[in-house]
Simulated scan of single mutants.
Amino acid sequence: MAAGRGRKVLKWSAIVIVVIVVGFFYGFVPWFLAGIATTSHFHFPDPNDGKTPKTYGLEFQAIEFRASDGIGLKGWYVPAAAPARGTIVYVHGHNRTRVEMLPEAAFGHGLGYNGLLFDLRHQGASEGKVTSVGYWERLDVEAAVKDALTRERAARPVIVWGISMGAAAGLLAAADSPDVDAVISDSAFLNFSELIRHHYYLFRGFARRRWWWFPTLPGFPIVDEVTYWSAWRAGFRPSDFDLEKAVDKINPRPILFVAVEGDQRMPPSYARTLDADATSPLKQLVVLPGTRHGEGFNSATAQYQDAVKRFLANLESSAQGARATGSP
């Protein structure tokens, strides 16, 4: 009798443990990862934290504007020192702020371009409770471009220069808005589903190295759960978040694709695929030495700057040629 009760207790204890383990790995873990992607408010330390364009010797003015869905955004407008060659809108990455783009903005100013830097929604000083890793942030980029052209009466062409999430938002914005004349896409991904799949396997490898007990869980169904919950929290359909489709809509406007050779998060194969989708004769692809995600401008500065100079010079020459022939 006592032995029977003991076996029954062991049986139910085992069932409870299995339920807890399954619930943890297939319930809590996907929900936790979705939260990291969409609602966390972590800020990666940046060497430019606390700095402004003034730190780089640039005059600027603080600006505020709203995205079309009402989210308030804050940033800086940095006018060119002389008649501008155009205007560059700088867009930072996930869990970053506008200060990430200060070195790029100083470089662009030196080339004679107006600059607009701002915090994307749910980042820095801007409003918003959710990050969508670029999907809704496209509205922020469109609003920044509109603010530059209308309130600041900024010169064309308008180039959007984004890193990682900022590159994704820039590509989506350019796909929607004809006001964007060209894009510099640094360390973008292909689509939302691929982003989650790839980062799950990176997370699993990290977890296995850090916690010996973390099992080698297969991608299914966790990847699908994280994809669903992340998109649900941010309010979009994963199938709508596709940067290859965005590039197809941007065509034939020019895009400069940038990647870092050793970037595990956004490998160069992504940039090569997007470049293959682009049709502009002015498109460029540059793969820089280094290993850190989104750090190409800092790790291979001269090579990066040369690529940007060449891209902008070709864009300017093309515009001058079109004006000379009366082409639109």
Results as ranks from 00 to 15, higher is better:
M1N: 14
A2W: 10
R7M: 14
V9D: 11
V9G: 07
K11F: 15
K11C: 14
V21H: 09
G27R: 08
V29P: 07
P30R: 00
W31V: 05
F32Q: 10
L33H: 05
A34V: 05
G35H: 12
F44I: 09
D46W: 02
Q61D: 10
A62H: 10
A62I: 13
E64I: 02
E64Q: 15
F65M: 15
F65R: 15
R66M: 10
R66Q: 14
A67W: 02
G70N: 12
L73T: 14
L73Y: 08
V78L: 12
R85T: 09
T87Q: 00
Y90K: 04
V91M: 05
H94W: 12
T97S: 15
T97E: 14
R98W: 07
E100C: 00
A106Q: 10
G108K: 06
L111C: 07
G112Y: 00
G112S: 09
Y113G: 00
G115W: 01
G115D: 01
D119T: 01
H122Q: 09
Q123V: 05
Q123A: 15
G128P: 05
V130S: 09
D147Q: 14
T150N: 13
S164T: 11
G166C: 12
A169L: 04
L172R: 13
D176I: 03
D179M: 04
D179C: 03
D179T: 06
V180H: 03
D181T: 03
V183W: 00
I184F: 03
S185L: 04
S187I: 03
L190N: 10
E194D: 15
I196P: 04
H199D: 13
H199S: 10
R204W: 05
G205I: 04
F206S: 12
R208T: 10
W212V: 11
P215V: 08
P218D: 09
P221T: 04
P221K: 00
E225L: 15
V226Y: 04
T227I: 03
Y228V: 02
S230Y: 05
S230K: 03
A231H: 01
F236E: 06
S239N: 11
D242K: 06
I250S: 08
N251F: 03
L256T: 00
E261H: 13
R265F: 14
P268G: 01
Y270E: 11
R272W: 05
T273Y: 06
T273H: 09
Q284H: 03
Q284K: 12
P289I: 03
A302H: 03
A307R: 01
R310L: 12
Q320A: 13
G321Q: 14
A324M: 13
A324H: 02
A324V: 10
S327M: 07
P328M: 05
P328N: 09
